[in-house]
Design a protein around this nucleic acid. Structure first.
Lengths: 199, 199
DNA sequence: GTCTATAGCTGGATAGAC
DNA sequence: GTCTATCCAGCTATAGAC
């Protein structure tokens, strides 16, 4: 199931230090700054270890992505178990914690097939999980699935959120407050006021 | 006003051949594939000419961006003069012609300040132009600007469109048809059926 | 497991001939 | 304006010592 890792155990200390260093570099300087030498330098280790543990730079990227995606998936599962799932989902997708990293991977995947298919595969897991809950919720609230298909509500929430975050990354925030207010007004119509904040 | 171009006239044949080659490379292989040697090879010219005409690779990228943005700006101005400006705008932002290139620049700009500020600056021009027309249109249709602020309508149209295109670039199209239908239903409520297709 | 050393490549950028 | 030649930097990846 995993990529063709050359060696090293899954729970090796060194391995996770390398993953941490890569993640840090991606967030602070972008994926283009990630090289075996730079990663090693941040980790305080030797560059050859990257190849010992991951085999190639592509496999290192994939390992970082999988670790982050798995964590997010668990956070999403928890959010969807909330008593106000739409509120919880909105707050989660709109929290910038892991979004910056995701955007970095999207950019990286633009022309690297291995990473692209990894993103697509995880994205389906996220969507399937969301759709199941949103369908039930909207149905419970008596929403006409013809006029507001659950899959559309799901795409709108994810899409608007990601778009706003992308703009914010560029320092553009014109109209954001009004748009967020509009989304939250709709959520409030269904779930009432938000009762407990994000975890 | 322009960047510190070393030499060459603005309307030089060689200069525009280099711009064409860069654009082609970005679209087909991504910005990471753009190097002076590769550009020259595609253009059938010598690599040193890139530096003669543009000074640096960053300035080459900026020149390509400006040329494309200027063209898009003119196309948008034309669309907004349509008798059905919302339809025209939606069709324009949802046409993938120049969007693939834009996404490439967004990725490139992630950590290159010069290009980022170029994008921000042009993005403001696009938005100002859109907002002016959308405000007038919504007002003319008697839309409550409190519930549906023009700036929000503008962001929703741009955001949904770009998000769908990003997903399509990854081969993900679940729920897209339903979402597009929903947007177009709203546009139809205001402007009626689309009368003439995109140019 | 961790290191040094190195092969082999590609890139940005410039000098200078023509 | 266009070209050749070249410098120097940085990268991936591997071999092999410890």
């Amino acid at each position: 199931m995993g990529s063709a890792r050359r060696a090293g155990t899954e729970d090796s200390k060194t391995r996770s230090v390398l993953l941490d260093a890569t993640e840090k570099l991606m967030l602070e300087e972008g994926y283009a700054a990630v090289s075996s030498r730079r990663v090693a330098s941040v980790a305080g280790l030797n560059a050859a270890l990257v190849y010992y543990y991951f085999g190639s730079m592509d496999d290192l990227f994939i390992a970082v992505f999988r670790r982050g995606a798995q964590r997010s998936l668990e956070r999403q599962a928890e959010a969807l178990r909330s008593a106000q799932p739409l509120w919880a989902l909105w707050e989660l997708t709109h929290s910038l914690t892991n979004t910056a990293l995701t955007m970095e991977f999207v950019a990286l995947a633009n022309h690297r097939k291995a990473i692209q298919s990894e993103i697509v595969s995880y994205s389906q897991k996220f969507r399937t999980m969301q759709l199941e809950v949103i369908s039930g919720v909207l149905n419970g609230y008596g929403i006409d699935a013809q006029r507001w298909p659950p899959v559309t509500v799901m795409l709108l929430m994810s899409g608007i959120s990601r778009f706003l975050l992308m703009e914010e990354a560029f320092g553009i925030e014109v109209g954001h407050a009004e748009t967020i207010a509009l989304v939250e007004r709709h959520i409030r119509q269904l779930e009432g006021d938000r009762r407990s904040g994000p975890s």
